[in-house]
Write a protein that binds this DNA or RNA. Structure first.
Lengths: 187, 187, 187, 187
DNA sequence: TATGAATGAGGGTTCATTCAT
DNA sequence: GATGAATGAACCCTCATTCAT
């Protein structure tokens, strides 16, 4: 059993419930049923744990986006595939979703690399995908940077709502989201 | 000079730069050039300061939305006016904007009333405004709750980006945002 | 209306309920319905308030004991009279009783003059009264200092019990106490 | 070396000299030559330290009294044995004695369990022992509850005096005390 | 005299991190 | 690697006291 994974998963559960700042390293150790000291064999400090959580999720998504970027399919399809995977992921790991939403905003001075990547590089890559579509004249003329950001936060907005409000189904949300994004982009 | 306002403004500056959890009450006192104890003559604890910051901003926005709701103008115009005022406000008080975005996500267990109001009642009211437009058949059929959330978070997302990134102009962002929202809604 | 008395009486009520150390000057001011600052026009600091409470009670008792000392009656009668007055007083002012018992033990380093007087001069005077009785051979040979202390603390102990426990009657307690003291002294 | 004992003993010394309310946790840590934080590994808060001090002493005495209760010896002998042990203990640990006397009176609202036990359950058990003797007609008819309290406070009164006044010998005090109690009880 | 806002030293407590076992 | 007791800086908050009005 991989201990680093054990710690990551335990941390996600506690942080989702308590928030990163109200989570103590001891709490994470208890959830993982290991000693505090052990955590420091895998992470150099508390911040690194949160950073690692974002890193893993960031890598999942950047990889997916990179694959999509190279695929020869329409932007609409790309967005659909991304939403499918992303929402499937959130549904399966709602604690992770909570953490990603809850802990994503640190002031510059105390920022973590993986969080910055998550919040900046994902929209950046999305912007490139939009540029591609623009060149192929699939969509109307837009400021791709801005629109990528809009889409990114649109997705987060829906995720926030769905995670909090269990009356809303993921599938319905996904459909509405796709419409909202696509009608916003199409010529 | 109103001391409570002085404290609120000082707190906004420090929290914007440091984040709420890295902000000490002492820091706020120093920024306000008063003693720590004085702060506790106006706020019963640290959390109340943050709560008050949200309360003030929440009231501003809820008032504006309520006015708009009653106005006999199109949804598009309502959104335009809201974006105008909102962005003007953010531009004038970028620290406040930072705080509103940075500190809005507390786990249920440690939540503050005014933050909850901000994050729930504002989209709720927005949803009602969308419902009105729907009844007048200004827009296509949508899940208003969900779309209100999308719009709310989209605005926040763009605001974040623009506040942080001085290459992006507020006016361009506003235009792009309006298009994206409007095309997403119109029939 | 004498403000110093007002403060003393308010202080007694609050201190009885909260204990001296959990009592703030503000609490006393609120109970007295005056401003904190006003208290400092009559007492130089918080300790002085407690000191004054003991001073007043000390004076009452020392006066009584001095009168008794000069009276030409038996020791038993003197004790009876003292118990009568003392218990009548406690009954009428149970908050004062509580304070006298609760707050009487301060470590030497932080001691207050009136408390020291209360705890030392009262037993001292009682010892002298016992000595008188001893000279008249009313009682057996005893270490009067010690016995005076015993009596003093015994009275306080029973008072505590009776004040707290409403099942016990003052009159029965007084009788039992007198017996116990008297049989302990008589030849 | 048991750390909890170390803390207890250090606390006793500081509290005896300063009083509980003038004692800071830091002072206790310094006396124990450990870090403040360490204290909180053994006690959940400052009050628990005082509580534990009383708990230990309460247990010592309740155990002794329980043993005595079962012994088939006269009440006078029981009292003698108790006084012997108690005073030997006080003599050996005069700081503990000081704490037990000084800190025993907290207002109901802020009371500690072990202090309440000490002040109530000890006299209660003593009352039962007196009842036994009464049934065997060893002593005169008395309200055992009251008399138990009287004796309890009588002992405390002497202890107070002896602890404060080093001119008085424990042995002399013990003798006087026994007389006072016994003559008070005997037929 | 009466007021009560302002003060800031100092209290109890927490918790990320270390390190000897 | 695994442990968890020990650490102590730093936090939030209190409250006796002052002083301008």
């Amino acid at each position: 059993m991989d201990k680093k994974e054990l710690i990551r998963n335990s941390a996600i559960k506690v942080i989702a419930a308590e928030g990163y700042h109200n989570t103590t390293v001891k709490m994470i150790a208890q959830k993982a049923e290991i000693a505090v000291g052990t955590i420091y064999n895998y992470f150099s400090n508390k911040g690194e744990i949160l950073n690692y959580i974002f890193e893993v999720e960031f890598n999942k998504r950047i990889e997916l986006l990179q694959q999509l970027k190279q695929k020869n399919i329409s932007l609409k399809e790309k967005i659909m595939i991304f939403l499918d995977k992303h929402f499937a992921d959130l549904k399966a790991n709602s604690d992770t979703a909570t953490v990603l939403i809850q802990e994503s905003k640190l002031p510059r001075k105390h920022s973590l690399e993986a969080i910055n990547n998550f919040m900046n590089k994902l929209p950046d890559l999305l912007a490139k995908i939009i540029d591609q579509a623009r060149e192929k004249e699939e969509i109307r003329i837009v400021n791709s940077q801005l629109v990528a950001n809009i889409i990114f936060h649109t997705i987060r907005g829906v995720a926030t709502k769905v995670v909090k409000d269990n009356k809303l189904s993921f599938t319905e949300a996904k459909k509405e989201l796709l419409d909202q994004i696509w009608f916003g982009l199409s010529k």
